[in-house]
Structures are given as C-alpha cells and as structure tokens.
Design a protein around this nucleic acid. Sequence first.
RNA 1: GGGGCCGUAGCUCAAUUGGUUAGAGCACCGGACUGUCGAUCCGGAGGUUGCGGGUUCGACUCCCGUCGGCCUCGCCA
Length: 593
Amino acid sequence: MKRTHTCGQLRETDIDTEVRLCGWVRSYRDHGGVVFIDLRDREGLTQVVFDLPAESDDAAAEMYKLARALRNEWVIAAGGRVRHRGADRINPKLPTGRIEVLGASLTLLNRSDTVPFEPDEFGNVAEETRLKYRYIDLRRPALAQALVLRHKVCKTMRDVLDAKGFLEIETPFLTKSTPEGARDFLVPSRMQQGEFYALPQSPQLFKQILMIGGLDKYFQIVRCFRDEDLRADRQPEFTQLDVEMAFVCEDDIIDMTTDVLRAVCALADRPFPDEVRRISYAEAMDAYGTDRPDMRYEMLLHDVGEIVADCEFKVFSGAVASGGLVKALAAPGGGAFTRKVIDGYTDFAIEYGAKGLAWCKLADGAFTGTPAKFLSQPVQAKLREVCGASDGDIIFFVADTPAKTNRVLGALRNKLGADMNLYDDRAFAWCWVTDWPLVEWNEDQQRWDSLHHPFTSPRPEDVEKLDSDPGSATARAYDIVCNGVELGGGSIRIHNSGVQQKMFSLLGISAEDAQDRFGFLLDALRFGAPPHGGIALGLDRIVMMLCGAASLREVIAFPKTQRGTCPLTDAPAAVDDKQLAELNLKIIAPPTS
RNA sequence: GGGGCCGUAGCUCAAUUGGUUAGAGCACCGGACUGUCGAUCCGGAGGUUGCGGGUUCGACUCCCGUCGGCCUCGCCA
C-alpha cells in the first residue's frame, strides 16, 4: 500500500520511474478506450492514464473496468511508470502537467458517497456547509495550503526563537478567572464544587511568573480564549505566539519580534522592510485617527479646530467651544463623488457614531457643500493649505468629541482607501506604535482603564504621575501593526510590587480585591522579580495576512461560526443530567428554543 | 443588544406585476466515445422553495413570527 511519491511531486526527471500514488479522485474522464484519473492529495494533482487492455489480458481488463467505475472523491492507490505526455498534451496549468502515470495497478481503498460539494477551487459553497463537512473542505488546495503555510510559520517561529536561546514552556489552560478585559470561558470544578476554572485569555501572568522563576527567554505557541462576539478576524479561541524575556527594554523585544517577522515573511515570500517605521500613539491618532494606522497610503487626517474655531458654521465652532475635535480629510479627486456616494459615506460615519458628515467639494477656487457659505475666504484658503487639497478634491469633516472624531474619520479613511484603490493589494506596510498612554478615562464607569493591561509598566519618570495626573503617564508598550491590522502587542512589565499595587489602586481595584485576584503575582514580585517584558503576536491573523485570506476561518482547521457553534461536531451541546449532578449544577432557565 | 445582506434540487444559482407543470449548470444514474485535463455528446432521476402562521381564487414572490448563515456597530487586544 505504501506510496512512493505524493501527487504534487513528479516531474520530467522522474520519467521511466515505477511509482505508486495514493489519493482522492478529483475528476475522471472516461473516453471509452482510455480513462484519465486526476489524483489529488494535499501536495497536488497527478494524471493517471488507463489504456484499453488487450482482450487476452484478464487482469488488465479487470483493472480497466475498475478505472472506468471510479467516481469523485473515491480513494485509490495507483501504480505505474511515469512517462512524458507528449508535446501537444502538456497541461501548463499543473506543476505535474508534463508527465502522467501509465496505470499498471489500481487498488480501490474506499468509495465515497456523492459529496455535498466538490472540494475544488471553483464554485462558492456556503460557509456553513463547508464547516459541516470540513473533512471535504480541507481537501481544497487553498485551505490545505493555508494550513501548510501555518505549519511553516510556526516552525519558523520556533526555529528563530530556539536559535536565540528561548525555551518553549506550556502554561495551564485550567486557570483562574481574572475578570479584566474580555469575558472568560468558565469550566466548573467537580472536586471543588461551586468553583470554576477559567480558560486563559492569554498566559500573561504565567509568563511573568516564569521570568520571576528565572526561566528567562520563554515562548509558547498557545491557544487563548475570549468569550466575546465574533468577527471575520475574531474567533473565541485563537492562537498567539507568546514571548517574554527578562533583563530587557523595549528595543530588545522590538528587535527580537522584528527578526521573527522578517523570517516569517521571507518564508512566505513577502516583503519586509529593513527598518520598521515607528510612530507614537499620539502621532497615529493625530494623522490616522486610529492606534493601528494603515500606512499603505497617505491621505492623512488634519486637526482643523483652530482654523474653524470662530467660523459661522456652528457644528464646527460649537464642537471646538465644548472641547471637541474638528478634523478634516481630503480625498483627491473626490469632487467627482455623486450625491449618492457621499450619502453612503454619511451613513457609514453615522454607523460609527457620528451625528453626520460634513463635506465640501473644491472647484474653481471655491468651496461648495453645506458648510461652504459659513467659511470665509481666508478660512477656505487655510483649509486647502492644511489638507493639501486642490480643485477637484473633496474634504470631509467630522466635529465631535476627540475620541469619536478620530474613530469616525479614521474609519472613513480606511473605507476611502479601499474604495478609491489607494494602495496595491499586495503591499505590506508595517509599523510599530509606541508611547501609549498608560490609562484612559472611562466615562461610563467613571474610572481609569488600562489601555494595554494592568501589568504594563509606566515609564520610570512617569511613575509619580500615577498619583498626580494618570492620563498623562506613558506606558512602556508597543504594538506591531501591518496594513491597519494589529498583529501583536506587548510591553515592559511592572516588576515592583509597590508599583503594581499602585496601578491596581489607580484602576479602582481595592487592596483586598487585588490580593484576592492577583495575590500570587504581588507575592512573586516581592521575591526577586527581574525587569522583564514581552509581546504576543496573533498567529491566525499573521497567517491570514500572508495568504491574503478575508477571514480567520480560512487559516484555522476547525473554526467556529459567528455564533460560536461548530457545525461539524454540533458543539456546544447540552450535557447529561448525570454530568451536571457530578458538578452539582442545575440548569435553571432552559434555552427557550 | 442594534443595523445590513442572505436562505429555492446534493452544490451554485434562475423563476416577469402574486398566475397555472419551479428551471439551468455541476454532481448523481444509464449509454456513446482511444488523448482528455473543470472532457464532450445523448438520455434519466432528483424539490414540503429553512420552519410556523397569515392575506389571497391563487404565494418561491406580500405580511407577521421564528431558526440559521455571513458582514458590521457596540463589545473584544
């Protein structure tokens, strides 16, 4: 039964070799006197030919009969000699297209029912069907190749880090709920009834403990769990490359990460810059309106508050007067946008929370649009200059609270960039976002929230600001961003118990609460914790980007639907009463379905 | 929790203003064919139009509800 080659392997140099291939019938072409079988495995496709046998040869006749009976997705082993196809029979679409195997033996290993869909590159099968029959979908070359790439990415990450002296160390999946950040997945404990483990949102605290334990230079390719609503780029379980080092500062982590990413991009044949640009959080927000700027194109945001502060257009001047932010974005050539297109952008802005979207078209040296008549000539001139706009362009304005203005106009910039084809789809624009604020004020909860997480260190010179002016304290945090997608983030951690306690108290976590939830960390920090820091990279997103996929589901073997279900296994599902009884649990409100 | 799109044969889709027998391609079954390569040709079978209710002489089509999928805002690093 053993195969000698894969279906993607044979070339002209293999001509006259006796081979044996195993795989799935992707298609069959029965010409009566000759039968072609396209045999597929995860490596590729090879054509096997069966010629009409001599009448006297019963064994060959039997084999030929079987060859004619083969159907799609049946599993076979076929042996024979490799031969050239002949100059006029070459299939340039296949890497193996210059050769074929002349079938001399054929074993039917298994039949297949008629498949619900053909696992080929044509067609467009409903996602749910693909997930339900994932074993068929996985035969699709694109999906198989994404998983091959994923494997190679993981291997490269391990090789690079191993060469740098890192240790891969596993951390628990059954751990403690720390209700910071995302919602936890909970696991009831049988032995400690009424108590729950939580699946880790990340191994954050364990890797810090490893540093304190002296196992500096740790990494792990690890599953993380977050019970939040799904998106195309968000699954409830996802994989991180998690790294932590002791005795380091920001540049050490950034350099290490850059080396990893450079190797990963090289393996996928993707460009990676010699030097990754760095941009501060403040600059990113100012010019791009987001903390994950898409640098594939310019078209920057401009703060025009000062220019319009005293203008007659109350939407602008009113926003400035009440401490808001007025920003503008000039779209080159946007003067040609129809009313319908502009209305579309207005709806888009409203989706993101804007009250509306003001715009002015520039033509013949003048502004048109709602705000135009309230903007004096000098104001119009300044807007032109600041936005770098000229006749034929359109300027969009958003006037709101600083956070909302940035959110809306930043999102609009992304949409315009895509709609107007402002960048090459194959471009990769990397940047590090640095100098993050340590905390931000949460208006709803009336408290400070950490931007990164509560274990991120402030800059040493900013520690005292935790008391005086927390909002102005800068964190030793950094995010790696590519094409407007956050691919990872990390920080230098707090390694001083007192500072950590101060941080908790700033975040409104009482001393008792802190001790209850993070006591083990606070204890550990008192027993010789070295300075340390690290980063976590989103593996799924990196692979998704490298293969240009539109969804995480294209790079995960067994992903969940948007409602967190698995059509293959039908998870999640009800459990036996016996199982519940062992856990001393009772379902009090049965699902209303 | 909100907004949007979608659900018709195994798969991908079509079906006029609400109109009489719901069509096509692929897959499947039977047949033909000695160089195809998403083979071709001839024939066949295949449907509770997601589900439940309603309006109507008549519903794939309109209305209400419900289930499911995808995108997205909120949420989430």
